[in-house]
């Protein structure tokens, strides 16, 4: 079967080959960022991986609509967010209270992340509307305008949410540090 295929190599239409090549470059360049975004969106490794697969599959189907490679990341994030919303529509009855969600096993595991275990828990417990702009700013280096465009919000709203996100994280970190000092003392 394989040996017979070889004779057909040259006949693969070049536009498909080019599309495939473009797609693979896109996957290589952006899969890690998109996975991390998905992970912090859903806080579950396996679900994040599923959503990423679905996202890239949809990206393949409408790859022709992506005119500018520079817009690829924003485009993929948009698809990803839509996929995630679909998942919620499908599984509405499975909804859990976001405030109670803690990270499952298989979360961040390298040394730096273990150091930041408390922070990790706090980030996971941030409400999604705070966590998302924070991800875009800190992980992807998006400006306030870019975040506003990506999330379809106005810039003031974005800046307010970023302010509140950090404010909440900082306060909670300080509170838990004080608690620890108190116990130690």
């Amino acid at each position: 079967m394989f040996s017979r295929n070889k004779t057909k190599l040259s006949a693969v239409p070049s536009d498909i080959a080019a599309k495939q090549k473009r797609y693979e470059a896109l996957v290589q360049a952006l899969h890690a960022d998109i996975y991390r975004y998905a992970y912090w969106l859903v806080k579950d490794k396996a679900i994040a991986e599923d959503i990423v697969q679905e996202t890239f599959l949809r990206a393949w189907r409408s790859l022709d609509s992506l005119k500018d490679e520079k817009a690829a990341k924003a485009w993929l994030i948009t698809i990803l967010r839509r996929e995630n919303a679909r998942r919620f529509e499908r599984k509405q009855f499975d909804l859990v209270d976001m405030d109670d969600v803690s990270l499952e096993d298989g979360g961040p595991s390298n040394e730096t992340q273990i150091e930041h275990q408390e922070l990790q828990r706090l980030i996971a417990n941030l409400s999604e509307e705070y966590r998302e702009p924070l991800m875009l700013q800190v992980m992807f280096g998006y400006s306030g305008e870019e975040i506003a465009e990506q999330l379809d919000l106005n810039k003031n709203t974005v800046m307010t949410r970023l302010f509140r996100a950090r404010n909440q994280l900082k306060e909670q970190l300080e509170r838990s540090n004080e608690g620890r000092d108190y116990k130690n003392g």
Binding site: Q28, Q53, P108, Q113, I123, L169
Partner: peptide, 22 residues
């Protein structure tokens, strides 16, 4: 610290799996 925390490890061979799936 936020950046380091958010920088979770990516599953092995994810890119390869995505391409195969496609």
């Amino acid at each position: 610290a936020i950046q380091e925390t958010m920088n979770v490890p990516v599953p092995e061979n994810l890119a390869h799996k995505i391409i195969l799936n496609q």
